[in-house]
Simulated assay, not measured.
Amino acid sequence: MTHDAPAEHVEQNRRFWDDEAAAWHGPLARAHWAQAEPSWGLWATPESQVSLLPEGIDGMRTIDLGCGTAYVSAWLARAGAHPVGIDVSERQLATARVMQAEFDLDFPLLLGNAENVPFEDNTFGLAISEYGASLWCDPYQWIPEAARILVPGGRLVFSRYSPLFALCARPEGPASAALSRGQFGLTRLDWGNRMEFVLPHGEMIRLLRACDFVVEDLIEIQAPQSARDYPEVSADWAQQWPSEEIWKVRLAG
Rank of each mutant, 00 (worst) to 15 (best):
Trp136Tyr: 14
Ser134His: 08
Glu196Asp: 14
Arg188Leu: 11
Gly202Arg: 11
Ile86Ser: 08
Leu150Met: 08
Pro139Glu: 00
Leu93Trp: 01
Ile128Phe: 01
Ala169Cys: 14
Ala169Thr: 13
His9Leu: 04
Trp136Ser: 03
Asn116Ile: 02
Glu55Arg: 13
Cys211Met: 06
Val198Met: 02
His32Glu: 10
Ala21Pro: 04
Ala114Leu: 10
Ser226His: 06
Met195Ala: 12
Gln92Leu: 15
Arg181Asn: 09
Trp247Thr: 04
Lys248Cys: 13
Ile86Asn: 00
Leu218Ala: 07
Ile219Asp: 07
His32Ile: 03
Val151Ser: 02
Pro152Glu: 07
Leu93Val: 01
Gln225Asp: 11
His9Ile: 02
Leu109Lys: 11
Asp106Val: 14
Ala210Trp: 03
Pro27Lys: 07
Trp241Thr: 05
Glu196Thr: 10
Gln183Phe: 08
Leu105Lys: 13
Phe16Asn: 02
Ala133Asp: 01
Pro163Asn: 07
Gly153Lys: 09
Leu53Asn: 04
Glu220Pro: 06
Ser243Ala: 15
Glu244Phe: 04
Val117Ser: 02
Arg30Thr: 06
Phe16Pro: 08
Trp33Asp: 04
Gly132Arg: 01
Arg61His: 12
Glu244Arg: 01
Leu186Lys: 05
Arg209Ile: 05
Phe16Gln: 09
Pro242Tyr: 09
Trp75Asn: 13
Glu145Trp: 11
Arg181Gln: 12
Glu216Tyr: 11
Gly56Trp: 12
Leu167Ser: 09
Asn113Asp: 15
Ile246His: 00
Leu76Cys: 12
Arg181Lys: 12
Arg209Phe: 05
Trp24Tyr: 15
Thr123Ile: 08
Pro46Asp: 08
Met60Thr: 14
Glu47Gly: 06
Ser51Gly: 10
Ser134Tyr: 00
Arg148Ile: 01
Tyr230His: 14
Ile57Leu: 15
Pro231His: 14
Glu11Leu: 07
Glu203Met: 06
Asp18Asn: 15
Ala74Phe: 10
Ala178Leu: 14
Gly185Ile: 03
Glu196Leu: 12
Val10Thr: 10
Phe158Cys: 09
Val249Thr: 13
Val88Pro: 00
Trp241Glu: 09
Asp4Lys: 06
Trp136His: 12
Gln100Ser: 14
Gly153Pro: 04
Ala22Glu: 09
Glu37Ser: 09
Asp212Cys: 05
Leu76Asp: 07
Leu179Val: 14
Trp191Gln: 10
Leu65Gln: 08
Thr95Gln: 01
Glu232Met: 12
Leu164Tyr: 12
Ala29His: 00
Ala21Lys: 11
Arg209Leu: 07
Gln92Ile: 02
Leu251Gly: 05
